[in-house]
Design a protein around this nucleic acid. Structure first.
Lengths: 137, 137
DNA sequence: AGATAGATGAGAATCTTTTTCATTACGAGT
DNA sequence: ACTCGTAATGAAAAAGATTCTCATCTATCT
């Protein structure tokens, strides 16, 4: 359960941490900003300081529990890391985000890194486009 | 020449714009933040306000003269768009940035977007890793 | 239960970027 | 080249996101 995941991360099992993790697991939105988390918790009657939300999300990221993404727009969004790696495709009109995984791309990335003497640690791929509802005529 | 590029963007040819474009063309660093541009200009004795730097870079981006990247770390970096599209590979230890272009990846991205009903407009791919000088034993 | 190291909350501080507004400069037309 | 209207600039304030400070509180270990 959650508590164990927090403990495994070397963190004390505190109410803010449990609530934030729960929220990430149950939220309908996969990608939430720190501000989102803060407000969603407020809506549920949980008074957790914004500074704590930032701290906890950063700790969860360090522990590999959540991933932080720098989409366009200046602020970071977080999502629960459910083990399955994936990339994102974002509609530039409505902001809808879909996830995908493509083995060919994954493989080529590894090769490209190697060809340049790099040892790949991670990557970030975001495709921007217009979704079926917002394609141009 | 530069002036024509600025004019083509529908912008007046002003001293700040010319100086910023020149700097982007001649800088040894390919990826510079707005703050970098501001300071580099100061070093050259050009007193151009930071607000103007932001405004001009945003205008250049809209005109397709420069590309804006959201690497990790909260602030955006800009680079002159020389027509040739490319992606980036960044060393997580020293911050070194190399550019690359891989036709296979480009092609697959287009296909992935299509398979999901998207019309690809742009994309951002950043590989993070350790360069040859910082690989683990 | 008590001690202690770690966690929290509130607000201040910091950093990046945008906005406001008064002043200045480009460039079209003469 | 000169004038004028519009767009551009600079400085400072504002806004937005994130981090830090520090006094207080609380898991966890004994």
């Amino acid at each position: 359960m959650d508590n164990q995941e927090i403990r495994n991360a070397g963190l004390k099992v505190t109410l803010p941490r449990v609530k934030i993790l729960e929220l990430l697991e149950n939220s309908t939105q996969r990608h939430v900003s720190a501000e989102d988390v803060y407000k969603l918790l407020l809506d549920k009657g949980e008074e957790i300081g914004l500074a704590t939300v930032y701290r906890v999300l950063t700790q969860f990221e360090a522990a590999g529990l959540v991933a932080r993404h720098n989409f366009e727009g200046g602020h970071a969004v977080f999502e629960l890391d459910r083990g399955e790696h994936h990339d994102h495709i974002v509609c530039v009109v409505c902001g809808k985000v879909e996830e995908f995984m493509d083995a060919t791309i994954e493989q080529r990335q590894r090769e490209v890194a190697q060809e340049r003497g790099f040892e790949m640690a991670d990557h970030s791929l975001i495709i921007y486009g217009r979704c079926n509802k917002h394609k141009e005529a």
